[in-house]
């Protein structure tokens, strides 16, 4: 159903509005990330993987749903690469194949309920960000 991975990677990068080539591998994104310990793929690696076109790796990484969208990496990146925007774009690609299954306002209370029961499974900031993005 999909075009080849390389084109897909390029689409994701374009959609994110980031320029992964600007990355100078300083690691400030990973240094500043509050979710670092929960992630299997760390923000700086996310940028490298996108640069290499490893979409499969990005889509199956746990980090995709661990990013808080706090945008600390966007704020601190000295080269303006904006790793969080990249992660947001990959999330969109993970969600879009589910058709009209976009988040609606009425599902939010369920998420919040889960949040109380199971702890920080879905971070609140992620929810806000996703709601803002996908409910249109």
């Amino acid at each position: 159903m999909r075009v080849d991975e390389k084109t897909l990677a390029e689409d994701i990068v374009r959609m994110s509005g980031t320029n992964v080539k600007k990355c100078m591998k300083c690691g400030k994104c990973s240094a500043t990330c509050p979710s670092f310990e929960d992630m299997d793929v760390h923000p700086h690696s996310f940028v490298t993987m996108a640069e290499e076109g490893d979409v499969a790796g990005l889509l199956k990484s746990k980090s995709l749903w661990k990013c808080l969208s706090c945008f600390a990496c966007v704020e601190r990146c000295p080269r303006g690469v904006e790793p969080a925007h990249l992660i947001e774009a990959v999330r969109f690609f993970a969600l879009s194949p589910q058709g009209l299954n976009k988040m609606k306002p009425d599902v939010v209370p369920i998420f919040l309920q889960n949040l109380e029961e199971k702890g920080a499974e879905v971070p609140q900031q992620l929810l806000t960000s996703a709601f803002r993005k996908y409910s249109k």
Partner: peptide, 25 residues
């Protein structure tokens, strides 16, 4: 790696940084 954050904590400085070669924070 780069330092991402410095915060004062109990009279000392908590420095949060990347070790890119070990892939650690």
């Amino acid at each position: 790696g780069m330092v991402g954050k410095v915060a004062e904590e109990n009279g000392r400085l908590r420095v949060q940084a990347s070790d890119l070669i070990a892939d650690k924070q």
